[in-house]
Simulated assay, not measured.
Amino acid sequence: MVTLYKQALAEAYASNPVNDVALDTLEIRHPAFIDDFGNPTAVRVVRGYDDIVATLESTAPMNAGQAVTFIAGAFNFTIPGYKEAQIPQLQITLDNVSLEITAHLEQAIGQLAPIEVTYRPYLLSDLSGPQMDPPINMLLTNVTVDVFQVTGTATLNDVHNWPFPSQVYRPDTFPGLLR
């Protein structure tokens, strides 16, 4: 069975060590999310009580390989399951959202570009990169915002049209195919 989790996170989930904590993070992106200086930005939150500075993977859509700040917040989500004839979905609820998050989401209303969400788990003892390779990237739909929370459903983008197998066998990479 193929696993996306790195060995350290798998061990932390299995043994529940006292000295290490698994940190769940979400990154929400949209072309309309602009910071005070006019640069594209993302909303990054970590489930917990303290902000963290963690390094993104080298293939991240924004700030690849850089250390970024994840703001502490309360959110819930369910990891998507993979069932036959169903598109995997991640249910997200962000509680007590800040005015900044609300403002970014209001900027995205009426835009054609989708809102993207990336789920990355980290270990408190190792913030040098996410403990899942690759992280889960999804599209956020059915977003509702009120003064207390933001809820939405994230789905894998166009999972039915993914190639299978995902690796294409060509003679330039697999010379054994030539006769």
Rank of each mutant, 00 (worst) to 15 (best):
Q86T: 11
P61G: 14
D50P: 00
G65P: 08
F70T: 02
G48H: 08
T55H: 08
G48Y: 06
P80M: 07
P80V: 05
I87E: 13
V53F: 11
T93Q: 12
D95V: 11
F75K: 06
T59L: 02
D50L: 08
A64R: 11
Q66A: 13
R44S: 03
V45K: 07
M62L: 11
Q89G: 08
T78Y: 03
I52G: 03
V68N: 04
F75R: 06
T59M: 01
N63F: 01
Y82C: 10
I79L: 14
R44Y: 02
G81H: 08
Q66I: 03
N63V: 00
I79A: 15
P88D: 01
A60K: 00
G81I: 01
Q86L: 12
F77L: 14
V68Y: 00
Q89C: 11
R44W: 00
T69H: 01
A64C: 06
N76T: 06
I87D: 15
Q89K: 15
S58H: 05
G73N: 04
D50A: 08
K83R: 11
Y49K: 10
V68C: 03
L56G: 03
F75P: 00
Y49L: 06
T93K: 12
R44V: 07
D95T: 11
V45N: 02
G81F: 02
I92F: 08
A60Y: 00
V45Y: 07
A74M: 11
F75Y: 14
F70N: 07
D51S: 12
V46F: 09
Q66H: 05
F70Y: 15
D51Y: 06
M62N: 02
G65A: 07
V53L: 11
A74C: 10
P61Y: 09
A67Q: 13
V53R: 15
Q89E: 15
F75M: 05
V68M: 05
E57L: 04
V53T: 15
I52D: 00
D51Q: 05
G73E: 02
Q91R: 13
M62Y: 01
K83W: 08
P61C: 07
N76K: 06
E57I: 09
A64W: 09
V45F: 05
Y82M: 10
Q66D: 11
A54S: 09
D95W: 13
L56H: 13
T93I: 14
I87V: 15
A85Q: 10
P80Q: 05
I71C: 08
Y82A: 12
Y49A: 04
V46H: 09
F77A: 11
F77P: 01
E57M: 06
I71V: 15
T78L: 11
P88I: 01
I87F: 12
A60E: 02
Q66G: 02
Q91E: 14
G65H: 10
P61I: 07
R44P: 03
I71T: 15
P80W: 14
G65C: 05
K83G: 06
E57Q: 05
I79H: 13
R47E: 01
G48K: 13
F70V: 12
A67H: 07
I79K: 14
F70Q: 04
A54R: 09
A85T: 11
G81V: 08
K83C: 01
D50C: 07
F75H: 05
P80S: 04
P61S: 13
Q89P: 04
Q91S: 14
M62K: 01
S58R: 14
G65V: 10
K83T: 09
E57K: 07
L56E: 12
G81S: 13
